[in-house]
């Protein structure tokens, strides 16, 4: 943890318009995340934890404030640069896995690589490596519906990893899993930050899951709760 923080958030505010009423989801948040951390975000529903994660991952935009990831203020990027940036720098893991049902495990993992210039051979190597990492190299030809929930989530993690992003964000990755599968998934995420040097940011409301992280931040009503 010598270099500058990978994520630096300053005075970040997000206001939603719900009907006629403005709802402040994030209220002037300051936060920095070091490279290689496994940060868990906790908080009750509506606390703004998912919004924060979405902004860091570049799928949502703040109303005010800066979100600097790897020395770039992603809040200032245009739509299509942001898409490129996501493709190269962020790996996503969702609560509901969000695998494409018509594609096999292998093809789902390969999907982000379709945006790159890599050759078929290179792609095969990367996909296989990612699937090996999550221990599913024997399930490549399976469709999502032929996999268990835990396996599906591991495929989703492999998909998040295949582009070798610095940042892996996970939104309630264990929310739909039994405890055994959940532990497997959390193990993988911990390994990523510990051994592969990835920065992992995970939203959860399960304290047991949060315990896997190297640091935990609590949010409440859009504000950070001091530990």
């Amino acid at each position: 943890m010598t270099a500058a923080p990978i994520v630096q958030i300053r005075a970040l505010t997000k206001i939603f318009l719900q009907g006629e009423i403005n709802v402040t989801a994030l209220d002037s948040i300051d936060l920095s995340i070091e490279s290689g951390e496994f940060l868990t975000l906790m908080g009750p529903s509506g606390s703004g934890k998912s919004t924060l994660l979405h902004i860091i991952a570049g799928i949502d935009r703040p109303t005010r404030g800066e979100c600097i990831v790897q020395d770039r203020n992603i809040a200032a990027l245009n739509e299509s640069d942001l898409a490129d940036w996501r493709n190269q720098n962020v790996g996503f893991v969702f609560q509901t896995f969000n695998l494409i049902p018509v594609l096999t495990a292998y093809e789902n993992v390969e999907l982000p690589l379709l945006l790159t210039q890599l050759s078929g051979k290179e792609r095969r190597h990367l996909v296989t490596t990612a699937l090996e990492m999550v221990g599913l190299d024997d399930r490549m030809k399976h469709l999502p519906k032929q996999l268990s929930g835990g396996q599906e989530q591991r495929v989703a993690i492999a998909r998040a990893l295949v582009t070798d992003p610095k940042l892996v964000v996970a939104d309630e990755p264990t929310g739909n899993l039994d405890s055994h599968s959940a532990n497997e998934v959390l193990d993988i995420l911990r390994t990523l930050s510990r051994d592969a040097g990835k920065t992992v940011i995970m939203v959860t409301h399960d304290p047991k899951a949060a315990a896997y992280g190297s640091r935990t931040i609590h949010l409440e009503k859009g504000e950070l709760v001091p530990n």
Binding site: I59, S80, A83, N87, L111, P112, L115
Partner: peptide
């Protein structure tokens, strides 16, 4: 999901 994975709008 595709968008989150980095696919652009025109794609």
């Amino acid at each position: 999901v595709l968008k989150a994975l980095g696919f652009r709008r025109h794609e």
